[in-house]
């Protein structure tokens, strides 16, 4: 069995009191928590600190650990004979046990609340998956790589149609195996939608920018627009101003009830960067006869308070 220096892991003296130990642990946990640190060894360092804290915060386990004396980290050692007597595993498994597992097992036996033969739920698996809009709409199949006590395994799962960004799903009993008759763990998936080059999703509604020429916006037009299915013809009414939203009912994302959200085309009026001589002439003619002034129109609509 390899010795681990839990005091060094938390960077506290061997006579540190519980408050010092808790403070040191929380500081390290904050520094190396996988939610905070993106360092490749963050999870391992967090686990090392948590393992040390699990023993040192418990007076009984700490006393048992202190019985081992001070040894170099990683040094092979034999636990005191009474540990073997107190532990109900066979001699072979005892020698192969990790120090943390052994101390955890001792804690369970001494505490009485959680005996090692009690049913224990399997560990849950939780992850965020990024899927495309099309896959959210139609449903898709994913391969999840799960790492548990039995090693790594792949689970094929089918994501139902109708999920949206921020959606959470649970698959019961497919996580880590339970022990001593305990239930198997579950799988929790958080859905995130990948950015789409055309559409933006707001729950089950979709939005996209519809670029129009000034004359299409002014005169109205029939424009072919993309949808998640096939392109459709959209009637742009005459006088469509920039920012106006044109709705295509039921062309958004599928939802879990089998309905669909709506698709909105947001009008953006665009102009050519360069003009031919004739185009310039026509624009100049229009400028000469038009009485339309968008500054006056918007000032009337949005008076300053």
């Amino acid at each position: 069995m390899k010795y681990k220096d839990y005091y060094a892991a938390l960077d506290v003296p061997r006579d540190a009191d519980l408050e010092q130990i808790k403070k040191a642990y929380r500081k390290l946990a904050r520094q190396h928590h996988p939610d905070v640190s993106k360092a490749p060894d963050a999870e391992a360092r967090f686990k090392d600190a948590a393992e040390a804290y699990a023993t040192l915060k418990n007076p009984e386990k700490r006393a048992a650990y202190d019985e081992l004396g001070r040894q170099p980290a990683g040094a092979e050692f034999s636990p005191p004979p009474q540990w073997r007597n107190e532990h109900d595993a066979g001699a072979e498994s005892f020698e192969n046990m990790d120090l943390a597992d052994l101390l955890a097992a001792m804690g369970r036996q001494h505490g009485g609340a959680q005996h090692s033969s009690m049913p224990m739920h399997g560990r849950d698996f939780e992850d965020t998956v990024h899927i495309s809009l099309a896959d959210a709409h139609r449903g898709t199949t994913l391969s999840l790589n799960l790492r548990d006590g039995e090693g790594e395994r792949t689970l094929e799962v089918s994501i139902p149609p109708g999920v949206m960004s921020g959606q959470k799903l649970r698959l019961r009993g497919k996580g880590d195996k339970g022990r001593n008759g305990g239930a198997d763990g579950d799988i929790y998936l958080h859905i995130a939608l990948k950015p789409d080059p055309v559409f933006r999703a707001d729950r089950h509604d979709l939005y996209f920018d519809l670029a129009l020429t000034p004359w299409e916006a002014s005169l109205g037009a029939e424009i072919e627009v993309p949808t998640l299915d096939a392109p459709v013809m959209l009637t742009v009414p005459a006088g469509s101003r920039s920012g106006r939203k044109l709705r295509l009912r039921g062309r958004g994302l599928a939802n879990s009830r089998g309905d669909r959200g709506d698709l909105y085309a947001t009008v953006r009026i665009d102009v050519a960067a360069t003009l031919s001589a004739r185009e310039r002439e026509l624009y100049q003619e229009l400028a000469g006869i038009s009485t339309f002034n968008p500054r006056l129109a918007s000032a009337k609509e949005k008076p300053h308070e």
Binding site: S158, Q167, L169, L171, K174, A183
Partner: peptide
């Protein structure tokens, strides 16, 4: 491998009792 379809949607449309929530 087996394909798993039995998802529970964790939204307002699904309900569970205290024991299930505890688990």
């Amino acid at each position: 491998s087996e394909l798993h379809l039995e998802w529970q949607w964790l939204d307002a449309g699904e309900a569970l009792d205290l024991n299930e929530l505890s688990r």
